[in-house]
């Protein structure tokens, strides 16, 4: 459509409305502004302001002979280069762990969500019970549940003993204090975030489409790939984001289930720089780098796989 044509149409549209209607529209617009005001204020106070503080803090300078934790305002961009050079492997590891955990959670959550949302449609009681069971872990503390994993995977627990008996694990092998344990913990702890959005989108799946697909001689696999999966994409998309982003910044799992060698995640490093080393600029710079990296990864992901239903 050419520009003048567009203009003409706009004019035409305005002409069609009565003054009352225009006033109503305007009022609605103002009303909208009022409605988002609390949200905007909240975000300004608890997100925008901390980000600004974080940014300026990351540029602070440590004066010569300073007392621990003493920094003065400055423009020290060197901090970014320094922490990046030192910690990019940890950052990379965090994203790899988060990615593996996200894929694992997807593989585990999808069939569960499908069962509850599609297969159990006629059985509300069973469906309700299963849903409650899926959400139940949320009712107890995140830390406690992770601690429980440590007990379950302990060297002298039955899992490790069984794996050793069938020679899957070597005699001196263990599961806790390994990357495997950390990824398992991440997968488990973020599973509901994957499961619920997928469930929500499969819930709305029109089963007549599946019948139609069968009537058109599609095999069950084809039906799944061409009908079910595309219909559930908004859920899968939301689920992966809700799992990946917090998993990448998580440090509880790595702290409880990991070791000191090859499981450290970026959250642990930020915690240690802030509280132990008292390197506030370093911790701030790392937090900022983490935020930017996640933002970039998510943008790429949205560009590549984003669905219209979601945005």
């Amino acid at each position: 459509m050419s520009a003048p044509a567009k203009e003409a149409r706009a004019v035409e549209k305005v002409d069609l409305r009565s003054p009352e209607e225009i006033r109503a529209e305007k009022k609605k617009g103002r009303m909208g502004a009022w409605l988002i005001l609390p949200g905007m204020l909240y975000m300004a106070l608890f997100f925008a302001a901390p980000v600004v503080v974080l940014l300026s803090m990351s540029l602070f300078v440590k004066p010569e002979g300073a007392e621990l934790g003493e920094f003065v305002p400055g423009w020290n961009f060197g901090t970014y280069a320094e922490v990046w050079n030192r910690y990019w492997p940890v950052l990379l590891r965090s994203f790899v762990f988060a990615l593996i955990a996200t894929v694992a959670a997807l593989i585990i959550a999808f069939p569960m969500a499908y069962l509850v949302a599609v297969r159990l449609r006629g059985k509300p009681l069973l469906k309700g019970i299963l849903l409650v069971l899926l959400i139940a872990p949320f009712f107890s503390s995140f830390i406690l549940r992770t601690q429980a994993w440590k007990q379950i995977l302990a060297d002298e627990g039955w899992i490790v003993q069984t794996l050793k008996a069938v020679a899957i694990l070597p005699a001196d092998g263990s599961l806790t204090a390994t990357p495997f344990a950390v990824i398992c913990g991440l997968t488990y702890n973020f599973l509901p975030f994957m499961m619920l959005p997928i469930y929500a989108s499969l819930e709305r799946l029109d089963t007549r489409l599946l019948e139609a697909s069968g009537d058109l001689y599609a095999s069950p696999a084809q039906t799944f790939m061409k009908v079910t999966l595309p219909q559930s994409m908004p859920g899968v998309f939301a689920g992966t984001l809700l799992t990946f982003i917090p998993a990448a910044g998580d440090y509880v799992n790595a702290a409880i289930l990991g070791n000191n060698r090859d499981t450290s995640m970026i959250g642990q490093v930020i915690d240690s720089r802030f509280f132990k080393v008292i390197d506030y600029p370093g911790a701030a710079a790392l937090s900022f780098i983490l935020m930017v990296c996640i933002l970039i990864l998510v943008l790429i992901y949205i560009r590549r796989f984003g669905t219209k239903d979601l945005f």
């Binding site: 302001a49 600004v52 503080v53 300026s56 803090m57 602070f60 004066p63 002979g65 300073a66 007392e67 621990l68 934790g69 003493e70 920094f71 003065v72 305002p73 506030y280």
Partner: peptide, 17 residues
């Protein structure tokens, strides 16, 4: 953004101040 207040609140001063 009232940076003075915000920054002052985020803890940077040791006794060296």
């Amino acid at each position: 953004l009232g940076l003075t207040a915000v920054l002052a609140a985020c803890g940077t001063k040791g006794s060296g101040g």
